[in-house]
Nucleic acid binder design. Structure first.
Lengths: 229, 229
DNA sequence: TCAAAAGTGTTTCTCGTACACCCATGT
DNA sequence: ACATGGGTGTACGAGAAACACTTTTGA
């Protein structure tokens, strides 16, 4: 193993975000339009440099902190309003034409009731919720990043409770099912999905919330996520 | 998003390896003893700096290449003799007391028939296959890295074909079962495991290889991995 | 002949899937 | 009244788990 040296050339390190939400029964990703070269005018993932710090009085930020900060800066959403998880790190030479850049990709899940609050709605030309169904070309290797993130969120869907990060605080079975359908891009049998759902009820993962919700015809019961017992 | 700048302070970036093998029905990790401070004399994961490059004629290496290079340097095994996959990236300030270091962790799977060939056998004081059963304190945040890697390999076990990366080119059902048992740290019913195994046979994932193998009593049939149809 | 591991059979239970059907409400 | 989505019932099949059993070898 090589000896430690301060003289090694060092790469730039960024954090890039794949910010998901489910709107109109559709999985969407937040993209921003680049204002500067390279890839000027292209759509890209939000992201930025990790604050590294210069000395002990300025230690810099962790990767997770950088991800949270970027999310806040890009969306205006307060901290803690989104679930964040690391996806993968990309570091191939040449992926940024300017210099060697290593990018740590995080995915963030934004609840649909918060999604309309972001700046996307005020400045739609430069920030946009984009459906996965009709993809655009993305700057750098950002399309690869998106694919990795989509694979990851699909994996997590049936193994963890992330679906609850993509519904409002109270929700109906149909709303939760639509989240699953949007992420997996396939239809679920409503009856069978309800059965899986009921198991969570008896397991104490969710509980019935007061009231009903109107979705077009017969009003549906609403539920609340409690957490994994 | 902040404008691009060459003057940002940049972190050091390393690749660290969690190298797994299964020996004596036991999941083992390759550790090296540090010869220099900090953590001098402690056990640590093998790893080193990513070659970043200085200009166009010296583009540097990708993270995967760095992982392969490190594996080769630390074990002496030829390239391509191990399965490698990225696990997670660690970047909290202070995780290395000297300067800001961001470490990309890869796991590597070494077949048990190759494991004895590594330098561990020649210089056992400084390189060692260490069982997960009686853990040692590790330098830096390497224990957290190991835990992440173990979680990942367990996840992958029933979802992918990684088990075949930890058996010789031809193997018996018992050998494959022992790999599963070592990784999951639990016993499997031999009869039931055989049934799962047989399904792979009819699915064309594996095929019968000529000959039998002696493991103490009745000789067992040997099989060969073909790949996922 | 006995221990030990290879390999088979059987039974039970759970869960996913398919699909028919009833229920409550807006139009 | 009827369309629409909420919600229930049922029947089948695949596969996990538990476990008794037979077979083939070395010692």
């Amino acid at each position: 193993m090589s000896a430690f040296s301060y003289s090694h050339p060092r790469p730039s390190v960024t954090v890039d975000l794949v910010i998901f939400t489910v709107l109109d029964t559709d999985l969407k990703i937040l993209l921003i339009r680049r204002k500067v070269p390279p890839f000027q005018g292209w759509w890209a993932l939000p992201g930025g440099f990790v604050k590294v710090g210069r000395d002990d009085s300025d230690p810099g930020e962790s990767l997770e902190d950088a991800a949270h900060r970027e999310l806040e800066e890009e969306t205006g959403l307060p901290r803690g309003s989104a679930f964040i998880e690391q996806v993968h790190t990309f570091g191939k030479p040449g992926r940024d034409p300017r210099t060697r850049v290593i990018s740590v990709v995080y995915m963030a899940l934004v609840r649909p009731d918060l999604a309309p609050l972001i700046r996307a709605s005020t400045d739609a030309a430069d920030v946009q919720w984009r459906s996965m169904k009709n993809p655009v070309a993305l700057a750098f290797d950002h399309m690869t990043m998106v694919e990795k993130a989509v694979t990851k969120i699909r994996d997590r869907l049936d193994r963890t409770s992330i679906a609850f990060e993509l519904v409002p605080p109270t929700f109906t079975t149909a709303e939760l099912r639509q989240v699953h359908e949007a992420i997996k891009a396939e239809a679920y049998d409503p009856g069978n999905f309800r059965r899986r759902f009921k198991r969570m009820l008896t397991d104490g993962v969710i509980e019935k919330a007061p009231g009903k919700r109107q979705t077009g015809s017969r009003p549906a019961s609403v539920y609340r996520f409690l957490g994994i017992g």
